[in-house]
Structures are given as structure tokens and as C-alpha cells.
């Protein structure tokens, strides 16, 4: 047993040196800079009224917890930050939409123990050009990852929700507030 002790000690010592917030891959500011070229785009708020709440409940599979959603915009481009539960923990997604099509999806914060694959481009690039069809469904499917099914579904739900919100803002007038 003594010959195995150094491995355990090494493991513990490495863990104790770890710094920073685990699983945070992009801050809000970094996400906005990537999305708009700077971190001061105009922002606005969508109140989750009864119509949106009903749509969101259908898309998410549960009622949204928030009363309103802040978003950022510049020209036809909007950016949304959405928390959605994977298996046990919330995953924070950033979704950029332009003219009703997803431009990019990013994992800003991942807290699950499994499903790390969804943060990487080989997975997220599937969301490019995703849009809502006339019947409200997604324009194309998202291939899953074995062992990460619930994280994949959380990403898909978040993109779908962002598209619903984006469509709502484009078809109704929203009161802008300070960036």
C-alpha cells in the first residue's frame, strides 16, 4: 500500500493548487466581445408574458424561472445568455442570432461531471444556421454524444429558446434600456 501513497499525495497536492472558477470558459464580457467585437452593445429586456411563457414551457419542457430576459443587440444581431439544467447542474449557454438564424452557440459555464464534449467546436458548430421553421420546430437535428445526452438536450433547448425570444423581439417592439 505504501508504494501507492505517493500517487494519492500527488493527486491531493495538484488539486490544492487549482485556481480560478472551474468550468467557466467565457465570461459575459468575453462572450459579448466575441459576438459584437466589443462589450458595450445596446441591451434590452424581454418580459416573459403569458404568450412567451407558454412557448418557453413547450420548448424547455418546464416553465422558465425568470420574469424577463436581458439581451444584447446591434443591427439584426442579438445575443442571449441562458441557463439550462443538464443532468444535475445548470449549464450557461451564450447564443448569437442574426436574422432568425443561430450564428454561434457557446458554453460559458459547465458544471456537470459528464458531458464535457459539448463545449468544443466539434459539437457546437452543429448549431450554425439553426432556425425555427414555420411550425416552430428546429430546422435541423443536433447529433448527440454518447454519455452526454442530457447536456446535448440542454444545449438544444437553450438554442431553441433563444430563437423563440429573438423571433418575439423582431415581431414586437421592445423598450430599450441602457447598455
Amino acid at each position: 500500500m505504501l508504494r501507492r501513497l505517493p500517487i494519492l499525495l500527488l493527486l491531493v497536492s495538484v488539486a490544492s493548487f487549482a485556481e480560478g472558477e472551474a468550468g467557466q470558459y467565457q465570461t459575459r464580457s468575453e462572450f459579448l466581445i466575441e459576438s459584437f467585437g466589443h462589450d458595450k452593445p445596446a441591451s434590452s429586456i424581454v418580459w416573459i408574458n403569458n404568450e412567451l411563457r407558454a412557448n418557453a414551457t413547450e420548448v424547455l419542457g418546464h416553465a422558465p424561472a425568470m420574469l424577463r430576459m436581458r439581451y444584447w443587440y446591434e443591427g439584426p444581431r442579438t445575443a442571449w445568455i441562458i441557463d439550462e439544467i443538464g443532468k444535475e447542474q445548470n449549464i450557461t449557454f451564450g447564443v448569437v442570432i442574426e436574422n432568425g438564424e443561430v450564428q454561434s452557440l457557446r458554453v460559458l459555464h459547465f458544471r456537470e461531471t459528464r458531458g464535457w464534449e459539448i463545449r468544443y467546436p466539434f459539437f457546437t458548430r452543429q448549431f450554425s444556421a439553426l432556425r425555427l421553421t414555420n411550425d416552430g420546430s428546429l430546422s435541423h437535428g443536433i447529433d448527440g454524444i454518447s454519455g452526454a445526452t442530457l447536456s446535448v438536450k440542454a444545449a438544444t433547448r437553450s438554442a431553441n429558446f433563444a430563437l423563440v425570444l429573438d423571433e418575439y423581439t423582431r415581431t414586437t417592439s421592445q423598450t430599450a434600456s441602457a447598455p
Binding site: L67, R68, K87, E88, Q89
Partner: peptide, 21 residues
């Protein structure tokens, strides 16, 4: 009120330290 309720909703969304599945 919206800010307060959002804060409350976000805290509700935060996963507790202990989870059950």
C-alpha cells in the same frame, strides 16, 4: 421589483450544494 424577482428566480435556479437524482 423585476430586478429583485430576477435575483430571487436566479437564486432559485442555482443548484444547491447537495443534489439528489
Amino acid at each position: 421589483t423585476g430586478d429583485y424577482l430576477d435575483t430571487f428566480a436566479m437564486s432559485e435556479m442555482q443548484q444547491p450544494s447537495t443534489t439528489i437524482g
